[in-house]
C-alpha cells in the first residue's frame, strides 16, 4: 500500500465565531473527524475564544474588563446567530435540541477534548481581549500564532474557517 493511504488524515479549523449554531457545526465536525481517526487542530480566535473559556471573569484594563463583562462567561452563553432575542433564542434552541436529544454544546466541546482534539487559543487575540491561558478549560494547549496554524493547515487534508 502506498504510504499516502496509511498516513493519518488531518483537519485544521479556525474557529472565529462565538455563535451557538456555528460552534455546534465546529464541534460536530471536530468530534466526527476525531472519531474517523483524523488528527484535529482547532485554532480559536476572537469571538471563538469564549468557547474554550471557563466561567471566570477576565480583563486587566478598563476596556478588557468591560469586554469580560459584556462577552463573559463560557460556552453556555453562546447565542444563535439568528433569533437571538437577548438570550431567548438560546433558551428556545436549547429546548428544541434537548427535545430532539441532541448533545449540549458544552458536552460536545468536552467530548472533543476527550477524543484528543487539539485546541489552541490565538495568542494575539488573547492579548487583545485580555484572556489569559489559565482562563481556559483543561486540555487547551499553550497559545500559538498564525504561523503554527498555517503549518498545520498546509499539511491538513481539510481546512475550515468557522
Amino acid at each position: 500500500m502506498p504510504e499516502d493511504e496509511t498516513r493519518q488524515k488531518s483537519l485544521a479549523m479556525v474557529v472565529m465565531s462565538g455563535d451557538m449554531d456555528k460552534l455546534f457545526g465546529a464541534f460536530i465536525i471536530a468530534t466526527g473527524a476525531a472519531a474517523m481517526g483524523m488528527e484535529v487542530t482547532m485554532f480559536f480566535t476572537f469571538w471563538g475564544l469564549r468557547a474554550i473559556k471557563k466561567n471566570v471573569s477576565t480583563g486587566k484594563t478598563l476596556f478588557g474588563k468591560m469586554l469580560g463583562m459584556m462577552y463573559g462567561g463560557d460556552i453556555t452563553k453562546a447565542n444563535p446567530s439568528k433569533f437571538s432575542f437577548g438570550g431567548m433564542g438560546r433558551w428556545m434552541f436549547g429546548k428544541m435540541m434537548g427535545n430532539h436529544n441532541v448533545s449540549k454544546l458544552i458536552e460536545l466541546r468536552d467530548l472533543a477534548v476527550t477524543l484528543g482534539v487539539n485546541m489552541y487559543g490565538c495568542q494575539m487575540s488573547m492579548d487583545v481581549m485580555e484572556i489569559p491561558q489559565d482562563a481556559f478549560i483543561e486540555g487547551v494547549k499553550e497559545p500559538v500564532g498564525v504561523g503554527f496554524f498555517l503549518m498545520k493547515a498546509q499539511d491538513a487534508d481539510i481546512q475550515l474557517f468557522i
Binding site: 468530534t31 466526527g32 472519531a35
Partner: peptide, 14 residues
C-alpha cells in the same frame, strides 16, 4: 438508540 449526529459514529469509534 436516541443518539444523534455525531454520537452514533463516535460511540462506534470509541
Amino acid at each position: 438508540k436516541g443518539l444523534l449526529c455525531p454520537l452514533p459514529m463516535v460511540k462506534v469509534s470509541q
